[in-house]
Design a binder for these strands. Structure first.
Lengths: 227, 227
DNA sequence: TTTCTTCAACTTGTATGTTAGTATACCATG
DNA sequence: CATGGTATACTAACATACAAGTTGAAGAAA
């Protein structure tokens, strides 16, 4: 049985992935101009697929299209990111409390396996930020899928890209991987011990990536943020 | 001081509002085909602005574009809607508990004013579903803005259209307006009395628009829903 | 009748003009 | 020098033409 829906790959799909990746990894810097014409030239295509790509990127707030002026990579808006963090906190703390309550065997096992993978990756040198991010995401995704909230995970992913860029900023510094892993382990413990009080508090801190360092990042990369 | 940012009105903006409205109000029915060419003809424009509109509508899951086949109004996916309800429940119950805790004077006053408007509208005959929806939304929006979560409200609105269509189904029947108003009043009471237990329970029921009636709607409009 | 092939009509993707708004460098004017 | 108008280059919005895949009906073959 073939359930992988064959969807022809269009030029715009490939370009979308390329440009999105380059924005998230700060290859294109916040504020940088991305004109249709120059992108079309770069990828060797016409402006039509580029327009599609830019409009899609605008819908996830990665670029802003200023009519007849230009299209620009959005700067990081901390007020916006702050609300995305709050959104995830509200949802994921509720989900985790539910897990703490019900102690679903299969899910807890899956989460422990996920943590093992993270531990393994951490033993090596030169940790690839994107690879670690994938494992980080896998842990959080399991929280959703384990509660049969796959759609909810997908929905949140669509608005999560701004937060993703924000987290990338301190991940490239390379010293927060271990902290994230340890947070996950503690969250795991709290769920197993039904310690919802500490669970919610730690998750808040975890999603914020340690409040004190945020201020440092905002200073260090202040040209990446909106005023 | 002029703070309304003058943004030139483009053809696609008007068409977007038109088509979106017609989908939400079921003028275009779920599953119906919306070809670029026929829409272009209907609005007397070329396919370019129509493509913009349809791509934007796809990003909020109101249409699905099947390449080289056609563009169709999406059917209501209850699994998806269920998760949107859960999302709103997680967020709004947290916000309301926060309000219950802090008892912010100005916000409580604003909420009471909002309820008065709803009460006034309910005294008349022939209640306009869209007008009531606006007042319903205003109550929920105040919960966000009162906690300085304007961005979060905006984010949720972007994924809320599917839920909006779902609620429209029983609103046109015209017998749930009073129930919604009464729910709001009770939620208000629970917040003032810091009764978070009942608050969370009622909000869940409120967002679901009464579980028992949902089954009836799914039967009555079953051609509007996915299998 | 049933099944397969062919083809025409229709779909969106892509390419390329054309139009109109914006920003800026330049120059004339005070 | 300061100011205001103008020409110009650039932008995205919009129009149009062509390309390529999908669908389904008509018709031939079994």
């Amino acid at each position: 049985m073939e359930n992988t829906k064959k969807r022809r790959e269009f030029i715009k799909d490939r370009i979308y992935e390329d440009v999105r990746h380059d924005i998230i990894t700060f290859h294109y810097q916040p504020g940088e101009k991305l004109s249709e014409y120059s992108l079309a030239e770069k990828f060797g295509v016409s402006r039509s697929p580029i327009r599609s790509v830019l409009q899609k990127l605008e819908s996830e707030s990665l670029v802003v299209i200023d009519p007849q002026r230009g299209t620009f990579v959005t700067k990081l808006d901390f007020d916006y990111i702050r609300d995305i963090i709050y959104l995830r906190w509200c949802v994921e703390s509720t989900l985790m409390c539910q897990i703490a309550e019900q102690q679903p065997e299969a899910l807890l096992l899956a989460l422990r396996e996920c943590l093992e993978k993270q531990k393994t990756l951490l033993t090596g040198h030169d940790i690839d930020p994107e690879e670690f991010t994938a494992l980080d995401n896998a842990f959080h995704e399991a929280i959703y899928t384990g509660n049969h909230r796959e759609n909810l995970w997908d929905v949140i992913q669509e608005v999560n890209t701004s937060y993703l860029r924000f987290r990338m900023l301190d991940l490239v510094q390379g010293n927060s991987h271990r902290q994230i892993y340890q947070d996950h382990c503690k969250l795991m413990q709290y769920m197993e011990n039904k310690d919802t009080q500490n669970l919610r508090a730690l998750l808040h801190q975890h999603l914020n990536g340690n409040l004190q360092t945020n201020e440092g990042i905002k200073r260090e990369y202040k040209e990446y943020f909106t005023a």
